[in-house]
Write a protein that binds this DNA or RNA. Structure first.
Lengths: 191, 191
DNA sequence: TTCTCATGTCAACAGCCGTAGAGTTCTGGC
DNA sequence: GCCAGAACTCTACGGCTGTTGACATGAGAA
C-alpha cells in the first residue's frame, strides 16, 4: 500500500483513461472502477483526485480546443473561401484523436445524460448566443452547425455507410459547395 | 400473487413503458425494474414476457413506420418537388410522438451502446445498400440522410437553440432549398 | 368440471456500482 | 532529520442491476 516512489503521473493517466472511456461509451457506461483499471490505479485514487464521478466527467471534458470559436472564425469572409475553410477546419478537428475524443465524449453523454446535454447547450449558447459578433445571421450559423453535426454523427459516432468510410477528400468536395450555398443564401436574405 | 381477473394488457403496457424509457434515457439508463414500475407490473413479468433486457429492447424498437423507405420514396422525381416532399415527410414523422419515440430510442441507444449501433447500421444498410433501386446517387442519398440526421439531433435530441424552438414552417423553408441543391447537384454529377 | 397453461407474484442470487474512511507510504519544505 | 500532507491501497457499506426459480392464480379448452 502507500505511495509509490517517483513522480507517477497517475492523475494524468486517470484523466486520459476517463476521456477515452467517456468518448467511447458515454457517461453511464463509464465506471470509476473501469477508468481506474485502465489507468492501472486503485479506484479509491480516482475518488481521491476527483471526488465524484460527475466531477471526473467535467474534468475530462476540458476541451483542448475551442471548437465553436474556431468554426465561427473560419466562417468569416467571402462565402467560397469561408466554406472551404470551415469544412477543412472542422475535419481537421475530428480527424485528430486528441481533439475528437472530448467531442465524442461530450456528444455521446449529451445524447443520454441530461446533465451533459445541459452542459452542451449552455456551452454552445454562451458561444453563439452573444449574437453581436456573429460573422453570419444566426439562422445560417445554427443551420451550418446542425449540418456539420449530422456529418460528424454519421461518420464518427454511429458510423453510417458510406459516409463513414468515404475518403476525406471526397467528403470535403461534396460538402464545401453545400456550405457555400448556405452561406451565400444567408447573406442574400440578410441584405 | 397469481393472475388478476380480466384481460390485463400488461404485455402492451410493458412495451409502451419500455419504448418511452428507451427513448428518453437510452439503453443503459433504462432498467427492467423501472419499466416494470412504470407499467405497474412485477419485474419478473417483464422477464417472463421478453426473456432478457436485450430482447425487450429489440421488441421496443419494432418501428411503426418504415422511415428509410418513406424518405427514399419522397426523394423521387424532380428536385424541387422531391426536396419539399422529403422535408415535409421527415418532419411529419419527427413531430408525431408515436413515430418519433422509437427513433429517439434507437438513436440515443445507438450513441452509447454498440449493439444498438450495429442494429442501426445494419438496418440502414439493408435499406440503402441495395443500391439498385435508389432514386438518387448513393452519395446524394447518404449526404441528405446525414443532413436530416443532424437537424433531428439538434432539434429533438440535444435541443440546441435556435433550431430547437424554431417554427416548423421557418425551418422547413430554410431546409427545402438546401435539399433541392443537394438533389440537383447529385443529378448533375451523375449525368 | 377438470386440467393445462399463460399470467402473475415473490424472494433471492451474484455481481456490479459510487462512495466513505481508515490506514500506509512517500515527498517536499523547513 | 522531521513532519505535514499528498499519494496511494484496502475494505466495506448500501443500493442497484439482470436473471432465476418456486410458487399462486385465473382463463379457456376439453
Amino acid at each position: 500500500m502507500g505511495r509509490r516512489p517517483g513522480s507517477s503521473g497517475s492523475r494524468l493517466a486517470i484523466l486520459e483513461a476517463a476521456r477515452r472511456q467517456f468518448a467511447s461509451g458515454g457517461f453511464t457506461a463509464t465506471t470509476i472502477r473501469s477508468v481506474a483499471a485502465a489507468a492501472e490505479v486503485d479506484p479509491g485514487l480516482v475518488v481521491h483526485f476527483f471526488r465524484t464521478k460527475d466531477a471526473l466527467f467535467v474534468a475530462a471534458l476540458e476541451l483542448p480546443i475551442d471548437l465553436p470559436g474556431e468554426l465561427l472564425a473560419a466562417m468569416r469572409g467571402e462565402p467560397a473561401e469561408a466554406a472551404e475553410r470551415l469544412i477543412s477546419t472542422y475535419f481537421a478537428i475530428w480527424e485528430n484523436p486528441a481533439t475528437a475524443a472530448p467531442l465524442t465524449a461530450m456528444f455521446r453523454s449529451a445524447a443520454t445524460n441530461d446533465q451533459a446535454a445541459n452542459m452542451l447547450r449552455e456551452f454552445l449558447l454562451a458561444r453563439i448566443g452573444k449574437s453581436a459578433d456573429l460573422p453570419r445571421p444566426a439562422a445560417t450559423v445554427s443551420l451550418l452547425f446542425a449540418q456539420l453535426l449530422g456529418i460528424a454523427v454519421a461518420r464518427y459516432i454511429v458510423r453510417i455507410e458510406p459516409i463513414a468510410s468515404m475518403e476525406l477528400d471526397q467528403l470535403a468536395r461534396e460538402l464545401t459547395p453545400l456550405a457555400e450555398f448556405v452561406l451565400a443564401r444567408g447573406d442574400a436574405s440578410a441584405s
